[in-house]
Nucleic acid binder design. Sequence first.
DNA 1: TATATTTGCAACCGAATGGTTTCAAAAAAA
DNA 2: TTTTTTTGAAACCATTCGGTTGCAAATATA
Lengths: 108, 108
Amino acid sequence: MRRDIFQAIADPTRRAIITLLALQAMTPNAIADNFNTTRQSVSKHLRILTECELVKQKQVGREIYYSLEIKKMKEIDKWLEQFRKIWETRFDQLEKVLSTMKKQKNVE
Amino acid sequence: MRRDIFQAIADPTRRAIITLLALQAMTPNAIADNFNTTRQSVSKHLRILTECELVKQKQVGREIYYSLEIKKMKEIDKWLEQFRKIWETRFDQLEKVLSTMKKQKNVE
DNA sequence: TATATTTGCAACCGAATGGTTTCAAAAAAA
DNA sequence: TTTTTTTGAAACCATTCGGTTGCAAATATA
């Protein structure tokens, strides 16, 4: 059973749950109210998010508040790092070309 | 059939292909040499990557060179933006606490 | 104490996923 | 021209996925 952060964010409902929980801790029922699905399916999503440590629980009486482990999101950012270098380089090259064009225009 | 960038990067083989293609354009055969799988399965992955425009093709004779559409990767970065704000804020708060602790220490 | 609320888990189902084998088309090489 | 190489696509298969229904446990309320 693959269970990593990339598989976790592959599902659009889970991405929406993550966005919700980024703003505030919520119970499964409260989360489910925001989607066109059953509480149990949200529960399944929360289980997956918990398994890859993207979400943590806090029990308050019979309610369980789920909140986002924001630092886990940095793992995606870390993976993107290698590509960011590339696209920043390309952007720099574009800047260079544009600036050269501008200079030539000034000379004309 | 869901076909977005988040689903595309969910598979570890596809992530590895993306990393390979970030360095240089490659043919399906050359890509497959790097993995413990068949060329056909790599071909399937390339199809998925092509469908969500993460990869583009260039035919040279009977060979097809695949390369990464680096700008498409920015979409992930864009989604991460909302969380980056949060984790930077939290970091600022931590900085504040640490600086306060330092000041208190100096007073002692 | 009896009832209602909140939740997780198991069983089941159809669809999607990732892989393999087989085949056909196109281009290069013999 | 015949053969080899490179590739994509189709058919098939076991597994996973996302969802539903039903149930049991724990806690709060009447």
